[in-house]
Structure formats: C-alpha cells, structure tokens
Write a protein that binds this DNA or RNA. Sequence first.
DNA 1: ATTAAAACGAACATATACGAACATATATAT
DNA 2: ATATATATGTTCGTATATGTTCGTTTTAAT
Lengths: 253, 253
Amino acid sequence: MSQTLRLPEILELARETGKVAVEDLAAHFGVTVQTIRRDLSELAEVGQLDRVHGGAVLPSGITNLGYEERRSLNQPAKRALARACANDIPAGACVFLNIGTSTEAVARELLHHNDLMVVTNNMNVASILAPNTNCEIIMAGGVLRRADGGLVGSLTTRMIAQFKFDYAVIGCSALDQDGDVLDFDFQEVTVSQTIIAQARQTFLVADHSKFQRHAPVRITSLSKLDRFYTDLALVPPLATACKTWQTDVRLCA
Amino acid sequence: MSQTLRLPEILELARETGKVAVEDLAAHFGVTVQTIRRDLSELAEVGQLDRVHGGAVLPSGITNLGYEERRSLNQPAKRALARACANDIPAGACVFLNIGTSTEAVARELLHHNDLMVVTNNMNVASILAPNTNCEIIMAGGVLRRADGGLVGSLTTRMIAQFKFDYAVIGCSALDQDGDVLDFDFQEVTVSQTIIAQARQTFLVADHSKFQRHAPVRITSLSKLDRFYTDLALVPPLATACKTWQTDVRLCA
DNA sequence: ATTAAAACGAACATATACGAACATATATAT
DNA sequence: ATATATATGTTCGTATATGTTCGTTTTAAT
C-alpha cells in the first residue's frame, strides 16, 4: 500500500477516536513505525493532525481545511509584501481579503491590528484571523472549492455586492507584461470583479513569479487598481504605464 | 506544554463525572501515578482542569460549557444518534446542517455518503465534510462566531432563504418537557427558524442531557418537526404528545 | 495540637520515541 | 530496457517521556 492510500485512512481512524498511536498504525498497515512517523509528520505539517509523543491527536480549535502549501507561506518575499500591505491598512477599516496564498499571508500580518472588519471568501483567512478577537470576521457564502478553501459562485458574488469596503486586497494567478491581471478560474474572476467594484481602494499583492505564469481569464488591469505590492522592479514599459495610470507600485524587500 | 496521547482522554473522563482520581487514571492507562500527576499538572497549567489532592476537577462551572467541552460530552450517544440520522438521508439529497456539536457528529457520519449537496452555516461541518469529494459543500455567509465556528446574523438568514432543502438537520441547546426546542443565542434562533421554513423535512438531533438544561429563546416546538433522534425514552406525557403531533421519535442505542 | 497515612514534587536513571542519514525496494518516465 | 523519482526499511545518536526514590506537604483522625 502506498502512502497516498494510508494518509486518508489514518485521518479517518483519528476522527473516530480522536487519536492514533504510532505503534497501532504500524501494525494496522504492516509497515515500520518510521514510515508511520513520516505519515504523521506530513499530516501535522498540513495541520490535519497535531503530533504528540507516541502518536497524533485531532487538532483542537476551529476549522482546518487541508492545504498543502502551508510551509511555502513562510517565504520571506511573500511575507514582506504582506507586511507592507497590512501596514497600510488602518485600524477601524473594513477590508476584503479574497482567495490565494498571498492574501492569507496578509491575514497573518493583520493578526495584531485592532478594530478591523474583515470580509472574506477564503476559509483559511477566517481560521488564520480567528485568534484576533479585535477583528470582526464575516464570511461570504458560496460553493466550497476544496483545493484552496475558497468560496466561489453566484452566491458569493451576490453576497459581496451587499458590502462596501474601504480596502480590497486581492491576489491573482498570473500577470501579463501589459498590466493585465489574470486568473485560472472563471468563477473566481467574477467574484474578484465584484470585489473591485465594491471597494474604495483595491490593492493587488503578487510577487514577481506571477509575471512568469500565464492564465486564461482576465480579471482587470493594473490601470484600474490603486496599489500593487510586489518584490521586483517591473519591466520599464510597464513601470511607466503604471505611472500614467497612477497605480502606486510598491517594491518590498 | 508537551503533549501526550492521554491528555484528551483524561479531559473526556473528567467531563463525564466532573472529576478524576490519580490512582484511577494510573490504573486505567497502566502507568505510574507520577506520570498521571505530570499530566494533570499540564492540564491544570492550561486551565483545563483544577488540581485537587488525589486528582483533578473541572474548572468551576461559572459559564456555559465551552465548545470543546460540549464536543466531548456524551460522545458515544451522540454518535449513535448521528449515525441513525445519517442513515435516513438518501444519496442525492440536499441537506442543511446547522450549528452545534450534534450536527457536526452527523457530518462525520455523512463522510461516506454519495452525491450529497450540503449547505451549512458551521465552519466545522465544512471542514469535517471536505474530505468527502462526492459531496458539494455550500457555506452560508455571515458573521463568524469564534466560540464554535458558527455563522450567524441577517446575512446568514438571507442566504438560507434562497434555498429549499430536502432535509434540515438541526441541534439545540435545551429541550423543555412540553416539547419546546430552545437555544441560548437569539441570532442563532432566527437562523434556525429560517432553516425550518425552507426545509421539506426537519430532523432534530439531541441527546437526553438537553432535557436537563435550560435556555432562554424558543426556536420551535417538537410538534412542528418531522423527526426527533434521541437516546432515552421521553417522559410519557411528551411521548403521547409526539404521537398526536405525528412527530417521529427515534430512540437510538 | 499531634500523628500517621496518603499524596505531592523534585531529582535522577532508564526506557522509549524521535528524526536524520543512508540503503533498498518500488513506481514512473524516457 | 534503463534511468529517475518516490516510497519504505534500517541504523544510530539525540530528545523526550516514564519509572523510581526520597524528602516534604497535605489530609484526616485522634
């Protein structure tokens, strides 16, 4: 049996009794304890289980959707962008955070802000920000996309349309040299467009790697955004274009 | 704080009777009393238990039970109810699960159902059911209540009003001998009433301990519900009343 | 108050679980 | 078929949990 088959079953066993023991699992699957340890480490890294001596237990507290990329979130570049963006959000603001690891990074940096109202269609943002009790969290409804804990669809759009945000912080899948902001999922694009329409100011957070990727659906253009947080200087033509558009490009080390 | 497989079980045992004895625990786990003392010290340090000579007791019950406490209360009974309820939900159904540890238990038992559409205002339900890829999950939006991961408020009500469910599975805080279904939070009650209004059939899942508790706000009456899953026979007057109301009472071992 | 029994916490010794590094088997791609 | 990647087994030094001992504190009975 391969690892990919074991992990779900381990989770299932854990959910039944709340805990699993390394030795038991090793016997159950007929593998060495070391293999089980590796399995548990992976599940713990993704937040599905809490590792304890001798086994693992279900994590306490609210919501933990599985999400692979959690380790890469500590990338210093992404964090710098997120911090810069969070610094520009004042206390008392009403802010929207949408789907994406970049916005989740911003959520992390907002953990110590006061008196915020955060609206989001990202389950991970909600669970990241939950510990900040100075912050009211409002979930937009919608269809759950398991891949990333995002909520999408017309329900989401309609709910967002009922708000007016001081700031919208959005991410994207890719960026074109001509300033077009792109995404993979059509449904998400509709949501993003609604967000932008309802926000007094819109911030895009995207590191330079997004310029090397391509995606099929156009969300908007940098020309329509108020600020763009990134980590490397733009190519000269786009930089001058942004000047013309009065799009504030913030380079963050 | 270091972690042990024993700690969650100690808490569970403590919640059943209100107290635990060092000697009993040592015998139960097959370890020395010294080890148990260390465990209890850790739990006391985090405030989960109060240490006393010879054992430990639950921290003084000033407040309502917290979410984690409720979750581990009456686990086996809750699971039996949940399983019975889940068995009555056919494939292809559109079902609503609301806030509460009982409905979360139902969600767990729905993990292997096929072709479901589940709507919920409970973040925990969403993350419990997420592994079931045969199931479409729709979150109702709303204000996040940190205590239990519930979404409440007028946003939630309005979103729910847009649906029509085949089945609604609801929980409650307390049950009166005259058949009134009660809850603590006014906001949640409004949500529950909307759910009932939008459902073709409504199932209540509540173990017998709910009859011993009291809560201020009335959600509805058993007379308006289609089925009631519980674990102990009702008092005779209520049982006959349910017959008159055609409320199907299911006793689950 | 006095006293004995039980329970406690600290300190140390031992057993066990742990992760890293490497070797080997299995699956996947070329 | 061969090469490469991935998963698993093996070994070993380290970290952590547990058991043991012992002096002190609490409890309860006189």
